[in-house]
Design a protein around this nucleic acid. Structure first.
Lengths: 248, 248
DNA sequence: TACACTTGTAGTCAAATTTACCATAAGATA
DNA sequence: TATCTTATGGTAAATTTGACTACAAGTGTA
């Protein structure tokens, strides 16, 4: 099987020895992209990390990343790298910021642009095509020591996510298409690290009119099945145009 | 007089002809910094622009910017450039994001990192040392066509400022040390483009306990002099640690 | 001095929202 | 049937918001 993460990481470490890319594309050589990929599984917020297979940091984990082709935008590069890693398209992806400490990369001066992505674990599990030895989901409260400044990038992205999730309904990108109100609440509780009241959360979120009740209920649960809802991007769009505030 | 903005801008345009920098420092060559410098004067939010003196975009205005030395962080580079331009230290400065469209710079592939700064106009007026022909404050509702993607960077920074100003009390950086509540309210009105109620604003902002009333009143006004206040960073720090929400 | 004018400051009150609860419903399981 | 778990609906007090009124403290002027 093609070992993707080894490929991605080795590109960076070996840049001084050989052409940066095995691809036909020519890439910029002082600037990279690193992605923090968030997932949500069984009540826990997780991050997808890849393992270094060779070089000075062999065996250590890091954020997936890579180089930017000269003819693509940085956003495109991030999408491309994400697709190469997970097989997913149309992922929610946003730039965080550039990380530019002069000594962040040991071999030479490389600035990296951090991105963060939110993926639905159900989609990911189906399409991902590499072994667990290469890439692995880590709970955010048990992240190992990462290469370079990747811990810093991760910490920043988490801080950013916590802020962002209060401003816009991006949390839905971490849930399945159909979800219950309690699932949604647990997601917010986990991301924000707070406890909420079921009943009040319910009233508040429904009052926003962002959710559409489906004609369906939860299946295979050993208790009363909850109503399933889906997120309505259309309505969100309408509301934001009128200056809408998404808060808890 | 040393023409600073000509210096700054020419560095970028002439990079193919000669060494990028007239300085002794060596700089990275595919990545720049551009700064959106906000000021607040007579009730209007303004931005400091510099004029191109030569090259293909002679006479056109743009954001002040420059190159990053190999041995300095991007944040340092932004502070240094800002200091070279305005003579100011300790300016409030934050990174926006990297702008990486492949054709944003016409001559070759250059990615720029956008920063935005908030300056007190009173400080600026004292120390700035170049002619009005080089650099000029523009009201945000009458920005001319700028070089490259600088209009886009400016638009993004404005959007960002509007969001940020609701999250954290950064607006104070645009006001003098001592200010009245009405001045502060006008600032928020201008930035957010809304109208507020004097009395309610007063109640709300004082309730946050972020302001300290000074033993001083406004001078030389032809009406009842208002109480002067100053911002208390200490208290803000305490409050943010407890999870504090700054909203209007 | 009296008066109008401007802005600052305090307070009121109804409406809306939040918070902390409680109560019941709807299943599943033993 | 009894019991357990989660879903869902509701209530009442506390708090916050928004619209508005009233008055205070100065300036400038007739």
């Amino acid at each position: 099987m093609f070992n993707l993460s080894k490929f991605i990481v080795s590109m960076i470490e070996n840049v001084d020895d050989k052409p940066a890319l095995k691809s036909e594309q020519s890439a910029m050589n002082a600037i990279t992209i690193d992605c923090v990929i968030f997932g949500f599984d069984k009540g826990s917020l997780e991050v997808l990390l890849v393992q270094h297979a060779e070089g000075i940091s062999k065996g250590k984990w890091g954020l997936p990343g890579g180089w930017i082709y000269k003819k693509e935008s940085t956003d495109n590069a991030a999408h491309r790298l994400l697709n190469e890693l997970t097989g997913l398209d149309n992922i929610y992806l946003e730039q965080l910021k550039a990380f530019g400490e002069p000594d962040r990369f040991p071999l030479r001066r490389v600035i990296t642009i951090g991105y963060y992505a939110l993926v639905k674990r159900e989609d990911y599990n189906i399409k991902a095509g590499f072994t667990a030895a290469d890439a692995k989901w880590y709970k955010i409260d048990s992240i190992p020591n990462l290469i370079y400044d990747h811990n810093e990038i991760l910490a920043y992205s988490l801080k950013h996510l916590r802020q962002r999730v209060r401003q816009a309904p991006i949390g839905f990108n971490l849930l399945p298409e159909k979800f219950t109100l309690l699932q949604l609440m647990r997601l917010y509780e986990e991301i924000l690290g707070i406890e909420m009241d079921k009943s009040n959360f319910r009233r508040k979120i429904l009052h926003m009119k962002l959710l559409a009740a489906l004609d369906e209920k939860q299946q295979d649960v050993s208790h009363r099945a909850a109503q399933l809802y889906k997120f309505e991007p259309e309505i969100y769009k309408q509301l934001t145009e009128k200056g809408f505030n998404f808060e808890f």
